[in-house]
Write a protein that binds this DNA or RNA. Structure first.
Lengths: 220, 220
DNA sequence: GTCATTAGATACTGACTCGTATCTTCAAGG
DNA sequence: CCTTGAAGATACGAGTCAGTATCTAATGAC
């Protein structure tokens, strides 16, 4: 996780240098990662509006041309920034022995790692438009990351015998749509009470309903 | 619903006039409403980023000073714009004879009337900060509007005997959190299939589960 | 050590936006 | 009809940002 890491002192041995930590001049992939992490810090603090090349360059202790050599415009930089956060921060949930615990853990992790991403997502449709890494691609990554982890959890639950029937797609994705809906409105990560409520008041009762077969009988 | 209503021709009898429709000079409440409607059109088309005083003034066929006389800054204008849309566009669902039909209707209406609002909501936390009409107030209005209509529907369902037990708050709010979650990611209003799925695959099965009492047995 | 590459600093243009000031012109009240 | 208040046009200064150009200097390959 990228922290501000403002080492403060700039000029170690260079004239007006505001280089990276340690005073050494960074290059290639190291520099690129540092920039994208700084960009992520910037977007979290100042939002999409405060996401300027000057601000990002300054925070990354480099300069604008270095950014422009890599990303031709603000859109690309923004997309690359979010893309990196999604790719570099995969959701992983170990086997905890029960569907309940694993789902709660997944919701907690998703919420913590990505709630700022959710807060920012609303603005993206307007900003990103025809970028190389498009809005649709970011959406796919964001949803896919949660869903594939969820799928893994459901597979384990099925192996344990906690689930025997097939759940509709929307039911499997339900916890995350609720997560997004609440995070969007509160601009905060999910608290423990909400996690418990989604798991115990909504998802598990619904799973049990599908298990007991007293379900979809009056549709269409 | 405010439409662009670009009557086109400007100078009816005034020198450089770009007045309102009809060429007459608007005043007071009429003018204010016209401005806020234009502002809403603007934010829908250009997003929060394109929400400038110049753009709004031009679209409302008036000029910046007129706006500044009413709202001291962009924040206030933005808050007033969203506030008006929420207040002027209440959600109403008539008695349709069944919980299922009424909920579907409510989701459809909420989605159509407010999906742009949801898209914009993510940006607001950063933009609005200590405004007279705050982020929290807008959130309360947005959630409250949906929830109170939902409560009315649930009351009718109870009178009909479709529901006899009490539902947890989160269950009653579930359709809207799912709505927000999906709209946030797709930037589109809910399609009919999604509405049907939320109603028939999630909400109603869950209600039935609570009705049959095979529910909350293993929490905390 | 030499050289090609690229980081990094700085400055600049053009566009845009905010917020205000000034002036003219209309609308309504009496 | 006359006065008052507000609408509307226009212009301006200050500030910000995108994107580019130009220069110096450090780094790594050889």
């Amino acid at each position: 996780m990228p922290t501000d890491s403002a080492t403060g002192q700039s000029g170690t041995n260079r004239p007006g240098g505001t280089n990276g930590p340690g005073g050494r001049r960074r290059r290639g992939a190291v520099l690129e990662a540092a920039i994208l992490d700084a960009a992520w810090d910037q977007i979290r603090e100042a939002g999409v509006a405060g996401f300027t090349f000057d601000a990002v360059a300054s925070r990354a202790r480099t300069s604008k041309p270095v950014l422009y050599r890599r990303w031709p415009s603000r859109k690309e930089l923004l997309a690359a920034t979010l893309h990196r956060q999604l790719v570099v921060n995969p959701l992983v949930v170990p086997d905890l022995g029960s569907l309940r615990d694993e789902l709660a853990r997944l919701l907690r992790e998703d919420s913590e790692k990505r709630f700022q991403f959710i807060g920012v997502f609303g603005s993206l449709g307007v900003v990103l438009d025809g970028s190389s890494v498009s809005f649709a691609e970011l959406r796919r990554l964001a949803i896919g990351g949660s869903q594939s982890t969820m799928d893994a959890i459901l597979v384990r639950a099925r192996e344990r015998g906690e689930i025997t029937v097939d759940l509709p797609e929307r039911v499997a994705g339900l916890p995350f749509e609720m997560l997004r809906g609440q995070v969007l409105m509160t601009q905060k990560p999910l608290d423990e009470e909400s996690i418990g409520s989604i798991v115990d008041e909504v998802f598990l009762p619904l799973v049990r309903a599908y298990e007991h077969g007293l379900d979809a009988a009056n549709e269409g």
